[in-house]
Design a protein around this nucleic acid. Structure first.
Length: 865
RNA sequence: GCGGGCGUGGCGGAAUUGGUAGACGCGCGGGACUUAGAAUCCCGUGACGAAAGUCGUGGGGGUUCGAGUCCCUCCGCCCGCACCA
């Protein structure tokens, strides 16, 4: 395992006692912070608030380096804001429901609850060893009935407010295990345990009506100024607002199944209507079902489409397949024009009407489809600058705007004019007493299906009664708690198998009824925990209105980019729904968002193809190249590409090992130093060692500076020597830059400024040591004796003391334990964790002006060209 | 497939608004101290070149007095895609 370079124990090295002992110091300071309760935030504190939050972890059992990175960043912000005099809320909790607990139950015969709480205990210990300035008194676990009770209450509130619906949706069904599979449990169309081909099944499920907020969720993105532009863009595209036309195509009665007279499609390209070559409907479209009723081959095709996972990526990357139903649709502008109606595997029921008209010349997917089935294409939009007479489409569709061609009365119009003209004409036409077309705003966003056929989640507080239907559990009966006596010896939902739990009396009529056995998506749990943190103690309501309104929004939220869409969008919706039901007073929960990059590490592979973990490998430099061997056997190991730390590639580094060997401050410092926080950081042994050396160097530097500053005047000297002034400038420049870059969360740049400042301080101390050396001949500034520091004039001593006091406070947010140790060494009897942020003296930031060539002259002197 | 992002020395990266590219760290080379150094300190380190200088921010093109930064295009890598969290 990784160890820092050690002093040989056999030597009585005089420096050994000067070495900073992280293990001793970190435990000691953590205990002191804990005993004094300095990170517990009071809700009645009158100072201005600042709420910093990192995405809470799933209690998998051990923290990983991604957590270390995330929580270190948040802790830096929390400590800096605290030093700036704000009342900082920095809480922590556990996203404790979820599938892994049930998998553990099945594989290891442990109860999900026991497994989860054991994991929480282990991870809490690990987080504490990081020295995070967290308010643990507000700790939340979402699997605690004291938490999910309020979630159930809000579910019922949302239901009353019309924000909960019940409708059908598709799930992945494992026909062998007889269980619903998550998308990640479907591998190459097969169930991960059974290996059976999955099927799509329809279930009636509970939905949150997030689409009711599609417009406000989209519009408010513009106001989220402290969100990364890329996240706003991704959410914008996810919500996917599009303006278009709903068009009703009549079906040729001679070909239509009984009772089917029309086909509704939504299109954003009504201008291309004269380029239509076919119609296509989703495999689960009602027309497909109707057509299949007397067509076994079509039925088989639909079955085949269902034998695959439900994920979007899978649907869209699969080979495009279609089946001609024999039905013919009538072109809305030409009664004699018939279009074949296909069932196609790339059309999804969830978007628009689940049906399209295909214009192959101007849509790539449609073009691929016609090229496969030989339906041909007619270009109807001519790109600017292209001769319409020679314009043909073969393999690449033209999806841009242009001039209309081959389109009868639309010819010569722009695409925009043609869209308008088609809408205008079809709006007036009527078919079966309704307009043939209606202008429509459509969203790609779908309602949020929250039903999960699983045990380890928040029970949905509903009772199904044959006479009364779906009846809400009365509030006095909340929480509906999970039964603990469940078994995992067979697949499926243990709540369903439980002998008694689901059998209850209907709250309305009293007749025997059945509890809802579905539990909620864990995204529900994580959609309001930040609001609960503002007062996690209140027992009779999800939130305490004055408190939640005072603390929210979260000023700085920090987490992985992988949550850019779902978690953040759901939380934005949930906050709006809570506002609508009176639980909060705001719309947007996160005023500032920061998405951090991943932690990556190089991979190691044995000749037999097995992966080796970094802790099992010794890497040596061999001239220009690096070589790796297995420590245990000496076997050569191939050094592979740098990839995201993962269990499968075994390229993980355990934070415990690093903290044990180097200390938490080193782990924190390296995490922040090497890469911009929004990019991936490559964890390397060399980098960690560099951080460790810097910790030792700072410790020596502060010690030496403290010694040289001894006897510094209490009063600020009236004048400073050039050397003292240079030091003061270095200190204040570093202070100004770190303050600035911390605000922007540019931690890696802050680290560079601190290095520069430390280098400057070191140079001055070195110079003093050299002067000292000429006097006493030892050459060591650390030498004791009355002459030490004698060369430092009072003004320089004052400047040294100022500089080192600034330095310690500058690195405190990143390395809090070392900072406390240094702070104490400097003679403070306070905690640096409670010290205020230093004040910049602006006049010290003024650079000596250099006369630079006036760039404006360039403009006037370019006559020599 | 769709949506989003990233690309700068040997490596991680820095560079308000378009204005001296390479701060800071790692690595490497040299030196000092040392019985020793994987500790510490000092010097050097984009490429080519003896030098003057020339080239240089993924490739190609463009805008501009001036481009790492703006525009177009291509290539490569990464993330998300609604039941992983």
């Amino acid at each position: 395992m990784a160890r820092p370079p050690q002093q040989p124990k056999t030597f009585a090295n005089p420096m050994a006692s000067d070495r900073y002992n992280a293990r001793d110091a970190e435990a000691r300071w953590q205990k002191i912070w804990d005993q004094r309760g300095i990170f517990a935030t009071r809700n009645d504190d009158p100072r201005p608030k600042y709420y910093v939050l990192e995405m809470f972890p799933y209690p998998s059992g051990r923290i990983h380096m991604g957590h270390v990175r995330n929580y270190t960043m948040g802790d830096v912000v929390a400590r800096v804001k605290r030093a700036m005099g704000l009342n900082v809320l920095h809480p922590m909790g556990w996203d404790a429901f979820g599938m892994p607990a049930e998998n553990a139950a099945m594989e290891r015969k442990v109860h999900p609850k026991a497994w989860t709480y054991d994991n929480i205990a282990a991870m809490k210990k690990q987080l504490k060893s990081m020295g995070l300035s967290l308010d643990w008194s507000r700790e939340i676990a979402t699997c605690d009935p004291a938490y999910y009770k309020h979630q159930q209450k809000m579910f019922l509130d949302f239901l009353r407010a019309g924000l909960v619906e019940r409708k059908k949706s598709k799930v992945n069904w494992d026909p062998v295990d007889q269980t619903v599979l998550a998308n990640e449990q479907v591998i190459d169309d097969r169930g991960w345990r059974s290996g059976a081909l999955v099927e799509q099944r329809e279930l009636t499920q509970w939905f949150f009506a997030i689409t009711k907020f599609a417009a406000p969720l989209l519009e408010a993105l513009d106001q989220l100024e402290r969100w990364p532009e890329k996240v706003r863009l991704m959410q914008k595209n996810w919500i996917g607002r599009s303006e278009g036309l709903l068009v009703r195509f009549a079906l040729d009665p001679a070909t239509a199944p009984k009772g089917e007279a029309e086909l509704e499609v939504f299109t954003t390209r009504p201008d291309t209507l004269f380029g239509a070559k076919f119609m296509a409907v989703a495999p689960d479209h009602p027309l497909a079902a109707a057509a299949a009723s007397n067509n076994p081959a079509l039925r088989e095709f639909i079955e085949q489409c269902r034998r695959r996972g439900t994920s979007q990526a899978e649907i869209e990357t699969a080979e495009k397949l279609g089946f001609d139903t024999g039905i013919r649709a009538v072109h809305p502008f030409d009664p004699s024009w018939r279009l074949p109606v296909y069932v196609a595997n790339f059309i999804v029921m969830e978007y628009g009407t689940g049906a399209i008209f295909g214009c192959p010349a101007h849509d790539q997917r449609d073009l691929d489809f016609v090229n496969k089935y030989g339906l041909g294409n007619v270009p109807v939009v001519s790109p600017p600058g292209v001769d319409p007479k020679t314009f043909v489409i073969t393999d690449t569709a033209y999806e841009g705007d242009g001039t209309m061609i081959n389109s009868r009365f639309l010819d010569g119009m722009t695409s925009a004019q043609a869209k308008e003209e088609v809408a205008r004409r079809l709006e007036k036409e009527r078919f079966h007493n309704r307009p043939v077309a209606e202008r429509q705003v459509n969203y790609r966003l779908r309602d949020w299906g929250i039903s999960r056929q699983r045990y380890w989640g928040c029970p949905i507080p509903i009772i199904h009664c044959e006479t009364c239907g779906a009846v809400p559990v009365p509030e006095k009966d909340l929480p509906v708690t999970l039964p603990e006596d469940v078994t995992f010896d067979r697949p499926g939902n243990p709540l369903d198998h439980h002998p008694t739990w689901k059998h209850v009396a209907c709250p309305q009529c009293g007749k025997p009824a059945r509890r809802e056995t579905d539990t909620m998506d864990t995204f529900v749990d994580s959609s309001w925990y930040f609001e609960r943190f503002t007062d996690p103690w209140i027992a009779n309501a999800p939130t305490d209105r004055p408190m939640v309104d005072a603390w929210m929004p979260v000023d700085q939220y920090i987490g992985g980019i992988e949550h850019a869409i779902l978690h953040l969008l759901y939380s934005r919706f949930f906050t709006r729904a809570m506002k609508a039901t009176g639980h909060v007073g705001l719309d947007e929960p996160f005023a500032g968002l920061f998405t951090q990059g991943m932690v990556v590490h190089e991979t190691y592979r044995l000749p037999n193809g097995d992966w080796a973990a970094p802790a099992e490998v010794k890497v040596e430099a061999d001239g220009e190249t690096r070589r790796a061997r297995l420590i245990a056997t000496g076997e050569a190991v191939e050094i592979g590409p740098i990839e995201k730390m993962s269990k499968s590639k075994r390229n993980t580094v355990d934070p415990d090992d690093i903290i044990e060997a180097y200390g938490a401050d080193v782990a924190r410092w390296f995490m922040l130093s090497d890469s911009p926080p929004d990019r991936d950081v490559n964890w390397t042994e060399k980098g960690v060692q560099g951080a460790w050396r810097f910790v030792q160097r700072l410790w020596r530097l502060v010690g030496e500076a403290a010694e040289l500053a001894q006897g510094a005047p209490a009063e600020r000297p009236a004048a400073f020597s050039a050397q003292a002034l240079a030091l003061r400038k270095a200190a204040h420049r570093a202070l100004a830059r770190v303050s600035d870059d911390i605000e922007k969360l540019h931690f890696n740049v802050c680290v560079a400024h601190i290095y520069e400042f430390a280098n400057a301080l070191n140079t001055i101390i070195g110079d003093l040591g050299a002067q000292n050396g000429t006097q006493n001949g030892t050459g060591s500034a650390a030498d004791e004796g009355p002459q030490t520091g004698s060369v430092a004039t009072p003004d320089l001593r004052w400047a040294l003391r100022e500089a080192v006091n600034i330095l310690v406070r500058l690195f405190h947010p990143m390395m809090p334990h070392l900072a406390e140790e240094c702070w104490a060494l400097l003679g403070h009897d306070t905690l640096v964790a409670q010290a205020s942020w230093p004040e910049v003296e602006a006049e010290l930031l003024v650079e000596e002006t250099l006369t630079l060539p006036n760039n404006n002259n360039v403009k006037n002197t370019d006559d020599d060209k």
